[in-house]
């Protein structure tokens, strides 16, 4: 079985995000980047499926990202994935979901696959669109926000639980399929030390847009990010203190009228 896992490099959930001066992105100095946490569930599920199905099953990681993504791809290989495709091109500064979808669809077609696991969303821009766009381009089913995954005995279909508001929804799908993974699906393993040593010898196939047959970044132009800006600071809390409650109430009314101008 040919299993593909999609991986994105994102800022650590603990990192404090600051917008750059131009408002075109975040400041990347001194923050740590990690595998998108939801993608870790995808890697784990891919590895479990491979272990279950056995035979000549293979897990291939696919990542669109800068040079720096290589280290995180290597981490996925250290967790046990077999090889990887790294789409890395200077023309891909900040690909939007249609661009990523078009590229991933091409890579998936080139590689061939029975099943694709990815995170339910990337925790950086939270768009949760790439898996859907990719599935639409390939015209295959997608099941999103999976918390339970079971493959059928003949490996031609799968039954999944999707986490929805207030409960789970159980669905059955044919393969090939794209599945986006939610926390709770599994407990991702660590990259073991022997795994890290083995990963050094595993292949990461680096591809440019030209290698994939694109003249320029595909799928763009439908929407554009104009500007990024931080949330406005939460208002200050002012405590009203007075000896007598009635004085405090009077002070509060005064503040509400004169400062907050709501009365």
């Amino acid at each position: 079985m040919k299993i593909i896992v999609l991986l994105k490099r994102v800022p650590d959930t603990e990192a404090r995000i600051l917008i750059n001066q131009e408002g075109t992105g975040i400041r990347e100095d001194d923050i740590k980047f990690v595998i998108n946490p939801y993608d870790e569930y995808a890697i784990e599920e891919g590895l479990r499926l491979k272990e279950k199905v056995g035979g000549d099953s293979k897990v291939t990681v696919v990542c669109i990202g800068s040079e720096e993504s290589a280290e995180l791809i290597r981490t996925a290989l250290a967790m046990g994935a077999d090889d990887a495709v790294h789409v890395c091109d200077p023309a891909l500064k900040k690909p939007g979901p249609f661009t990523s979808g078009a590229i991933l669809a091409k890579v998936l077609q080139d590689e061939g696959f029975d099943i694709v696991f990815c995170g339910k969303q990337a925790i950086d821009d939270d768009m949760a669109q790439v898996q859907a766009i990719t599935a639409e381009i390939l015209d295959i089913p997608q099941v999103n926000v999976a918390v339970v995954f079971e493959i059928s005995d003949d490996h031609s279909s799968a039954v999944l639980n999707r986490r929805i508001e207030g409960g789970d929804e159980r669905v059955e799908t044919k393969l090939p399929v794209i599945i986006s993974c939610e926390k709770g699906l599994n407990e991702p393993r660590y990259a073991s030390l022997p795994g890290i040593m083995k990963a050094k010898k595993k292949e990461i196939r680096k591809k440019t847009l030209a290698d994939l047959g694109f003249d320029s970044a595909p799928g763009g132009g439908r929407s554009e990010i104009l500007k990024w800006f931080p949330l406005p600071k939460g208002g200050e809390c002012k405590m009203v203190e007075a000896e007598e409650i009635k004085d405090a109430a009077a002070e509060l009314v005064k503040l509400l009228r004169e400062e907050a101008k709501v009365l």
Binding site: A70, E71, R74, T75, A78, Y190, A191, L193, M197, K200
Partner: peptide
């Protein structure tokens, strides 16, 4: 090195 960072990372996560 990349390998050393990965080892540090696994140790830290664990």
């Amino acid at each position: 090195t990349e390998e050393e960072r990965m080892i540090q990372s696994t140790s830290r996560e664990f």
